[in-house]
Design a protein around this nucleic acid. Sequence first.
RNA 1: GCUGGCGUAGCUCAGUGGUAGAGCAGUUGAUUUGUAAUCAACUUGUCGGGGGUUCAAGUCCUCUCGCCAGCUCCA
Length: 635
Amino acid sequence: MKTLGIHTKYFRFEGREKAMEGAEVLKADHGEMSIDHECIVIFIGVEKGDSESPSSVASQLASDTVKRASALNVETVVIYPYVHLTENPSTPRIALQVMDDLEQRLSQYLSVVRAPFGWYKAFDLSCLGHPLSEWSGRYIPGEEAEEAKAEEKEEGRKPSEFVRFVVVDLEGEDYEVNSEDFSQCPVFKKKQPVYKMLKQFVSNELGRAEDTGKRPKHIEYMQTHELVDYCDASEKGHYKWYPKGLLIQKLILDYAAQLAHEWGAFEMKNPIIIRGDHNVVGELMGEFHERDYQVDGGRGVCYLRYASDPLAFPFMQNTIFTHKQTPLKVYEEATCFRNEQEGEVSGLKRVRNFMMTDMHAACASNEEARKEYEILCLKFAELMNNIIARGRWVLGWEGTVGFFEENKDWLISIGKRMQVPAFFKLMPEMSHYFAIKNEYQAITDDKANVQVSTVQWDVKDGERFNIGYIDENGHKHPCPVIIHASSFGSIERTLCAILENIAIDAKRGIAPMFPLWLSPTQARIITVSDTFIPFAEELCNTISRYNIRVDIDDRDDTVGKKIRNGEKEWIPYLLVVGEKEKDSGNLSVRSREDRRQKEMTVDEFIGMINEKTEGMPFRPLPLPRLVSKHPIFYG
RNA sequence: GCUGGCGUAGCUCAGUGGUAGAGCAGUUGAUUUGUAAUCAACUUGUCGGGGGUUCAAGUCCUCUCGCCAGCUCCA
């Protein structure tokens, strides 16, 4: 629904002729009215999408209008149907429904005048012209008026209204805590460093994040290492990816796909535009905070995909599967757009366009769901340990008190098996679609946490979207549980967590570098002089054949300078070649990890790299193999 | 959105009212180098943008844009 509001000195209108069949019957006054005092006129264009919930848009507009009227000290409001505000009008029936509803709501507080619907009307007004005298509005079904939101809050239905907090240690002992004195909990007196991280996470969740005022390290790294950067041709929160960053992104996606396939999912892909009048929008909008991007191709309002579910659910709904085929497992690389508020977007931690690696399992029973839930939890723990946060992470949980009590032992055992402490936030009732979900939180250098993976237990959407399996008798049953999981919550956040984790290394005197399989250049050949370039190229060919990204620094610099540059680029292995190597055929390998130089044969070197990257995806060099051919992207 | 901070060369930054600078990077030349910076010369500017104060503004005022931090929320 689109609206235009005007604060006017007076307002007169007169119905002239019928514009359509469904026009309202004019009352005795022949649709004429003259208001000779200050009033508010609301021109209203009801849109197709509003049919999802006419009462929702009406309540929002009513609430805004009442506030506006009180601010302007006005007691009369005119409801004026004005279809020309939108290119995508609803049916007259819906529009009338909205007007009726609106009239009813407004008349509780104000004197309301209705202009007739479906007539060509003459009108006359005089806008007062002060800064608050004109305003436009856009309302989407599914949003609640702020009063309704406030009521909800009081009823304790908002996710922030958690009523119980439980900390669980590595042994599986649980401790109830509260926001006042959580720091007294004996768990935090334990020696293992992971409890310090847990405390940091709990205090971020319960209290205030510590204000370090520092720029996160990952932003510096993403630019200076030419991975990702701001894009001045786009808006904030949308980034450009340089070749090296893109390589890393694609390798992570390769890995996520590999993981999903091993799990038994098939990969599919949905569009990024969602029709505004499709029922998923109305059903799910409220759960994603309406931070949508609207797109108008001239055929009615559409939304850029704001989450994976609104398209993944229809996909599963339309898939026919039987009790022999459950759980139905799907995997998707889902590009999502969220029109985050100004000031919320920050580096790679919070962006407006991100790629999720999304997994769903539609399960036929709780038992089936439990099994999948466990498998995914343990799998993601490996990801956190091996790739993203190398032991510097903790587990957060959100769910209902009821689900927690019923499944306490099981939930706690999951964390125990992952060897990670956990923090539960529990609410009395479900506020979203999940009964329980966990969040894998990487702990960063600046005392913050970055949420990456998640596994969620959805008990609502099987039924709501009629996603179900066919039983032995040919009857369809909605799935009682759908597991939602995201291996790499988003690629952007994954990269953020990896970079922040590297920053912690650097601070502790460990050489900062990417995991070998993600290093854009895994090995660089450094020639002692340009006479060895042909030999270097030959060597490069040999090594490259074994799926190793190796380039050659052929620039006219001293060996010392080239080493320095290679180290600054975090290249794991630097191979200096000169007379000695040419004669012996051996390599002089400088390893960044242990800061040592070793002599080994070419085969030994290849074997070592292959062994260290075994099972991980591979892609070739993102830039020309001769370093002299690399352009400068950042500085 | 609100509060605070920052914005000067491709990068990192100095410049507190009086001729726009340094280091790195880049280009050219010399050098042919053995494990974290070879030497020299040269190039590089809408001082984020608009407006104002002033004889004079990178510097002071004002508006605006961008970035960062916090509030809030999430993947």
